[in-house]
Design a protein around this nucleic acid. Sequence first.
RNA 1: UGGCCCGUAGUUCAAUUGGCAGAACGCCUGGUUCUGAUUCAGGAGGUUGGAGGUUCGAGUCCUCCCGGGCCAGCCA
Length: 592
Amino acid sequence: MTDDPTPIKRNFLYEAIDADIASGQVQGKIITRFPPEPNGYLHIGHTKAICINFGIAQHYNGQTHLRMDDTNPVKEEQEYIDAIQDDIRWLGFTWDRLCFASDYFEQLYDWAIVLIQKGHAYVDDQTVDQIRANRGNLTEPGTASPWRDRPIEESLDLFARMKAGEFPDGSRVLRAKINMADPNLVMRDPVLYRILHATHPRTGDTWCIYPMYDWAHGQSDWIEGITHSMCDISFEIHRPLYDWCINRLAEENAYPPGITYKTRQMEFARGNITTLITSKRKLLQLVTANHVTGWDDPRMPTLRGMRRRGYPAMAIRRFWEEAGVAKRENLIEFAKLESLIREELNRTVQRRMAILDPLKVIITNYPEDQIEQMSVINNPEDETAGRRDVPFSRELFIERSDFMEDPPRKFFRLGPGKEVRLRSAYWVTCTDVIKDDQGNVTELHCTYDPDTKGGKTPPDGRKVKGTLHWVSAAHALDAEVRIYDPLFLTENPEQVEEGKIFLDNLNPDSAKTLKNVKVEPALADTQSGDRFQFERTGYFCTDSDSTADKLVFNRTATLRDTWAKVQKQPNQQKQKQKKKQQQRSASPHKKD
RNA sequence: UGGCCCGUAGUUCAAUUGGCAGAACGCCUGGUUCUGAUUCAGGAGGUUGGAGGUUCGAGUCCUCCCGGGCCAGCCA
């Protein structure tokens, strides 16, 4: 396991574990597990459970198992088994054991027989529909299956023949015999085994009956010696069944080898984040309907997507650590995650200059053939990152948005007659604005002050407010930059009004490609996954599509931008006024 | 309507288990700055869902009410 992201923030799970240790309930190591079903890719929601389970074990100097909950072969695939491990490694966690629920199929089967022998389970011949109909509902008790009291020997025989493949899918199930009137519907004789003639990615065609979650999960925990099984709140109502299964076996002294205690399940609320969806089904829909380019689309909240987007794994881990753990519903502001992403990147990543929307600048008093290497600091937050040389010449590119022909008072950038600093280079003053026939600005003419080399203040002590990033036109590399914005427009995209679906909340402008980007030559040999801050524009990550001939960068996040906020303000005020007026005119006091 | 769970700044969580309701993010103001970034200083923001009760003292204990969530897969 890697280093702690931040000091741990205690929560009720720690309290409970401390109590279990204090009471002697648990002796020895604390062992947790992360039990994904290999039926899809991991997403941000899963990372909360990963951080909790690995984090707690780490805190107690214990162990964590990665266990594939592979009990439903019709949905699970080897591809996901591999991807899940890859993603967890990327997050920075290392499991002490890799386990598979399918490794326990034999044991689970044997235990099921024990249950039948003791009269705690029976084979039911009802159809799916009959079982559903007889389960009752929230207010009415269920009705017993006609097979509920069939002789133990008969169930034993039938169960063996289910396993032997004598019956078609859906013809029979093994059910626990608990209580058809239990107010908790989970306890109304839950199905333990179903017949599935399907090929399992690991056990192949060995089995044609497969255990249900409720029968497999708790016992898998128990077999592995998991002390605390932490899962999301949706399993809370399953806890009585979880305990019931283990207790029935414990009564028969059927403890797994070396195990002396019963695993304790504890539940926490899953974490929701504004504008993000964490439903495997809906994520799949985005992929299949081509709303995104794939599971690793940088806009996807999958680990693969976030990795490609450039999110640091540590930011995700710190996010959950700082968010905390509780049992109440929550919707965490994306800004919280973003601030951690920026904080990690600001500290660790080198700066480069890139012009997203180039505007040509000619320094008219700069010698035509001259090239100077300007020494630029790589990361002001990290001296060990050193410096690099960036070529400067007579023809440059600056950001189009850094020039305004008729700038407002507080615009610190370039305008006719205005002077700015080119970062680590020279101070320049705009002398001429060149336009095309349509009146579009195509080029700026500037003069530079040789006394400001390196960007330093000239001897006369005059000041400039603005510092711009730039690249030398002759030395610039062409690049493509992909700008990403939230995939969804609404805070809670999964919440939709009547007659609408979550896809209606899609942001039509979540991805934009800038194809005419000019970057400094130091970016020539960047590799996929490299991260940078492009000065004044944001954090970027070299995309997997990037090649030496065609550089491609993804925007991970923007820098905080108070100037943009200032610009927006007048509009907001106008809107507020408008709203007020509308409210007034809509007021009941005013008659039409 | 049955059962279970949950209500503390805008958001997410704390509150030494009955002792002055705090932090982070967000927001606002100002300082510094060769990134309008970073950073630093400060500020606003709370009837702890509500009403009773116990107590010298209640976010914490008790009662009632209100609000929200989950459960009727041979998914996990």
